[in-house]
Amino acid sequence: MEQIIQLFLFFLKNIGTKRQGAHRTSRVKRASGTEINDFKEHQSVRKQLFLFKDKKEKTIHIKEEKTWNRGFNMWNKIMIGVLLAASISFLSPSTSEAKEPLTYFPIVKKGEVLEWNQVNKLIPKGATFKVIDLETGFYFQVQRRAGNKHADVQPLTHDDTAVLKHLYNGKWSWNRRAILIPIKGRMLAGSMHGMPHGAGALENGFPGHFCIHFLGSSTHRSRNIDPSHQYMILKAGGQLAKFASGASAKQAVSMFLVGMKQQDIKIAKPVLSSILLQDRSITSLFKGITSMQYEIRTPSSRYPPIVRTEIRAKIKKYDDDGLHSDTYTFLLERKSMTDGWKIIKIRF
C-alpha cells in the first residue's frame, strides 16, 4: 500500500509540472505574439519574458498568470490527495478492524492460580464469562449452568461453539487445555476439556455441557482431583517449574505421563533432563496419542532414595495403529534433598 501511495504522489508531481509548463507556454505565446516552439526548462521561459522590456504590462500579466496557475495546480493536488485518502480508507479496513481477529484476545503471560472455593464465589451459577485459550489466544463466551465440585458450563451462542470446536481441530475431545478467565478485574488460571456430555439448555449447537476446573476442584462422580486438569491449571498460572522444584519423584513421573497423555511436552519439560529433551525417541512420545491410561507403581528401593530412584508405570495408549500396552521404567536423580527430581533415563 505504501508503494502505491508513493507512486501516486510521483504521478501527481509530474502531472502538475507538465500542466504548469503548458500554461506558461500558452501565456508566453499570447503575450509576446512570438512562437516559442521548443523549451524544456522553465528557466528558458523566464529568459524569453525579460526580452520584452518595453511591454511591462504584458510581462506583469504573465507573472500574475504564472502565480495563479501555481495556486490552481496546488489546489488540484490537495483535492486529489484528499480523494486518494478517502479511497484508501474506503477500500482498506480501518486499523481498529484489522488489528486482530474477532475471536482473538491479547494473552497475558500467566493467570492467577486460585482455589476452587474462592472461584466458586467469583463465578456463581448463571454467570456469563469469557474463556481464553492459553496457547492460541482464541476466546469464546460461556455460561455457568451447574456444578458444585467444578464449573459445568455451556457455550453462549453458535459462534462460541464454533470457536471451541476449532480449538480441538473440529473434533470434540476429552483432552485438557490450559485457559485464562478474566473476571472482576482478575485473570484466573483454569483448565477445560472439549467433550459435550450431560444436559444442555442453551440454543448454541452444543449437545450438552463441558467442564472447567480450578485448583483443588474435583470430578463430580468420583470426587477425585484430576491430575491432568491440575497440571494444566499450573501451566496457565506459569507455575509448572515451581511445582516441579518441590515435587516428589512420583509426582515428577506423573508430570511426564500427563504431558504425554495430553500431548503437551511443556508439562513434562520441567522434570526432564537436558539430554532427554534433545532425544527424539522421547520427544516423539508427545505426538500421535489419541487416548492413554497409566498406573504408577511405588518407587524401587534399588537406589538410595535421597538422590536417585527408579519408578515403573504401566501404560495403555491408543494411536493410529491401535492399542499399545507397555511398561515404562523411569530413572530419576537429584543433586541434593533441596533440588528437584529430574528424569535422566526412560526404558520402554
Rank of each mutant, 00 (worst) to 15 (best):
K53D: 01
I36Q: 05
G322N: 10
R223I: 06
L234M: 11
W116V: 02
D264H: 01
K47H: 08
I233S: 00
R334V: 10
M192W: 06
L91R: 00
R177Q: 12
T157R: 06
G185A: 07
P304G: 05
E135Y: 09
A252T: 08
A313T: 10
V82L: 15
C211R: 04
I5Q: 00
R176A: 01
G81P: 01
T17C: 01
I181N: 00
T157I: 09
D133Y: 06
W172F: 15
K55N: 13
R24T: 08
K316P: 04
M255K: 02
D339A: 14
L215I: 04
L49E: 08
A178V: 00
L272M: 13
G288Y: 07
N14F: 03
G126M: 02
P101S: 06
T95R: 09
S301H: 10
D54S: 13
A244K: 03
T338Y: 07
F330G: 02
I346R: 01
A241S: 14
A268Y: 06
F256T: 06
K266S: 15
T298V: 06
S87G: 11
K63W: 10
Y168A: 02
K13C: 09
L277F: 05
R27H: 11
N148V: 00
T338A: 12
S254C: 09
K109P: 03
Q278M: 12
H213A: 07
E203F: 10
L180Y: 03
Y303S: 03
G33T: 11
F243N: 05
I289A: 01
A244P: 11
P93L: 04
Q263M: 13
P182M: 08
T128R: 13
N224Y: 03
L49Q: 01
R312I: 01
K171C: 01
D320T: 13
L234P: 04
G81N: 11
F8V: 07
T327C: 06
K345P: 05
F330L: 09
Y104H: 11
G259L: 07
T103H: 15
L84W: 05
M232K: 07
M74R: 14
M260T: 05
T59K: 10
L91T: 11
T136R: 05
D264C: 02
H150Y: 01
W174P: 04
Q141W: 15
E2H: 09
W172M: 02
I62D: 02
S217L: 06
I265P: 00
V45H: 04
S228N: 11
H23M: 14
Q263S: 14
H213G: 06
A313G: 09
K287G: 00
S44K: 13
K77H: 02
G237R: 00
V28I: 15
K314D: 15
D133C: 10
V108H: 07
S191I: 04
F39A: 12
K66T: 12
Q48M: 11
L102R: 10
E100G: 01
D326T: 13
T298E: 15
C211T: 07
L12S: 00
M1P: 07
R297L: 13
E65F: 10
